[in-house]
Structures are given as structure tokens and as C-alpha cells.
């Protein structure tokens, strides 16, 4: 059955030592391999299919996977319904979100999701608490929103990179 017979497995244990199987390491290896598989699949697809896949992924990443983002934006609405104030906040958020998303997707910054995700949760709580505590919107609000936007952009990039974004698919 083996072109290199099973005897060699016994010999390999003597020559190389026993396998050192650690759950954590095995999981990390498996995750990395899964990502490689997704990248290979993607690379082999025709462009129409790829386009469709990314559109689908884009929607999925807002509903249901982007609920944190929706909560955050809802938080902004709950604070005030004055158009100018909202416009400022939403623009600040969009700008910041885009900057970090691009930076992270291009590989310039890399922050593990174990740090980013809890901070995102914190930012939502922050906005909510602020909404409840103060009647009027704080004038620093757009800046606070900008900073949180940076954070949420990073979070989005984490999800995207786990999904597998090939290096050579950036629009020129």
C-alpha cells in the first residue's frame, strides 16, 4: 500500500522523534490551510464568478456579519436627528473607516482581531452611554466618531482578510 513502507514510519519515529501534537498549534495550522484553500479556489475562478462572490460577501459582511457596524451607525442616529450634525458624523465615520480598511487590506497595518474586536464593542457601548448621558451632542463628537471609525475599518479588514483577499485583485 505504501511506496515507502509502513516500516519507515517506525524508523522515522526513531530518527526524528515523536510527533508533538498541540491543539493550539494544530488549530492555527488548520486555519492557515483553510485560508490557502480559499485563495486557491478564488484564483481558479472565472472573473464573473469572482465578481459575484465578492458582491455576495459584501452583503454578508453587512448583514448579518456587520451587525456591530449597524449598531454603531444606529447609535449615531439615536443621538440626534439634525441633518448637519448627522452628516458630519457619518462623513467622519466613512472617511475613517475607508482609511483603515485600505491600510489594513494593503497590509500596511496588522492588528490581531483579539484586540480590535473588543475595542469595537467598547466603542458601541461608549456611543450608547454618551447618547444617554448627554442631551446635546458634544462638539467633539465627529472626532470621537472618526477615531472609532478607524477602529471599525480595522475590524472589517480582519473579516475580509480571513475571507482571503488575494494580493493581485486590487483595482489599479
Amino acid at each position: 500500500m505504501y511506496a515507502h513502507s509502513e516500516d519507515e514510519l517506525i524508523i522515522s519515529e526513531i530518527e526524528q522523534g515523536q510527533l508533538d501534537m498541540q491543539d493550539q498549534q494544530m488549530t492555527a495550522e488548520y486555519e492557515a490551510a483553510l485560508k490557502r484553500l480559499r485563495m486557491r479556489k478564488l484564483a481558479a475562478m472565472p472573473w464573473q464568478e469572482k465578481f459575484f462572490i465578492f458582491i455576495k460577501a459584501g452583503i454578508q459582511h453587512i448583514i448579518p456579519k456587520g451587525l456591530d457596524h449597524i449598531l454603531f451607525v444606529l447609535g449615531l442616529f439615536f443621538s440626534s436627528l439634525i441633518f448637519m450634525s448627522l452628516l458630519k458624523q457619518v462623513t467622519a465615520f466613512t472617511l475613517a473607516h475607508t482609511i483603515t480598511l485600505a491600510l489594513a487590506a494593503l497590509g500596511f497595518v496588522e492588528i490581531p482581531s483579539s484586540i480590535v474586536e473588543p475595542l469595537i464593542a467598547l466603542s458601541i457601548v461608549w456611543i450608547a452611554v454618551e447618547n444617554c448621558m448627554f442631551k446635546k451632542t458634544n462638539k467633539w463628537r465627529p472626532i470621537v466618531v472618526f477615531v472609532f471609525g478607524l477602529l471599525l475599518g480595522l475590524g472589517f479588514a480582519c473579516v475580509l482578510s480571513e475571507y482571503g483577499l488575494p494580493n493581485d485583485y486590487f483595482s489599479p
Binding site: A3, H4, S12, Q16, L19, D20, M26
Partner: peptide, 13 residues
Amino acid sequence: FTRSNKRGGAWMS
């Protein structure tokens, strides 16, 4: 690729 739950060496089966 090498991984922690694979034997060393190379073979066909």
C-alpha cells in the same frame, strides 16, 4: 506542507 500531526519524510500511497 509540514504540520504537527504529520509524520516526517515524504511518501506516496
